[in-house]
Simulated scan of single mutants.
Amino acid sequence: MKNSKVIAYSGVATALSVVMLFLGSIVWVLGYTMPLVASLIMIVLLESVSKKSALLTFVSTSVISFILLNDKECVLLYVLFFGYYPLIRDKLNDIKPKLMSYLLKFVSFNAAMVLTQILCVYVFGIPFDDMLGKWGIVVFALCLNLVFIVFDKLYTLLLRLYRIKLKKKVEKYIK
Rank of each mutant, 00 (worst) to 15 (best):
M1S: 07
K2D: 14
S4K: 13
K5H: 10
A8H: 03
A13R: 07
L16S: 09
L16I: 15
S17G: 14
M20L: 14
M20R: 04
L21G: 02
L23A: 05
S25E: 03
V27L: 12
W28M: 15
W28N: 15
T33W: 10
T33G: 13
S39E: 02
I41A: 07
I43V: 07
I43N: 00
L45F: 06
L46V: 01
S48H: 10
V49H: 01
S50F: 04
K51R: 15
K51L: 13
S53D: 06
L55M: 12
L56R: 05
L56W: 09
L56I: 12
L56G: 09
L56H: 06
T57P: 06
F58N: 00
T61C: 05
T61M: 05
V63G: 01
V63F: 09
V63L: 03
S65N: 04
F66H: 08
L68G: 06
N70G: 15
L77P: 07
Y78P: 03
Y78I: 04
Y78T: 00
Y78R: 05
F81T: 01
F81G: 00
F82H: 02
Y84S: 04
P86E: 00
L87M: 05
L87H: 00
I88P: 04
R89L: 06
L92V: 11
L92Y: 00
I95Q: 03
K96L: 09
K96S: 10
K98I: 15
K98S: 14
L99R: 13
S101G: 09
Y102M: 12
L104S: 07
V107W: 10
F109N: 00
F109V: 01
M113A: 11
T116L: 08
T116Y: 04
L119D: 02
L119Q: 00
C120W: 08
V121S: 14
V121Q: 11
P127K: 05
P127A: 07
D129W: 11
D130E: 15
G133V: 02
K134A: 14
W135K: 11
G136W: 05
G136T: 01
G136N: 03
I137S: 09
V138M: 11
V138G: 06
A141I: 11
A141P: 06
C143E: 12
L144G: 05
N145Y: 01
L146R: 03
V147T: 07
F148Y: 14
I149R: 03
I149D: 00
V150E: 02
Y155V: 05
L157C: 11
L161P: 04
Y162W: 11
R163C: 11
R163P: 09
K165E: 13
L166I: 07
K167H: 08
K169V: 15
E171R: 09
K172A: 15
I174R: 02
K175Y: 15
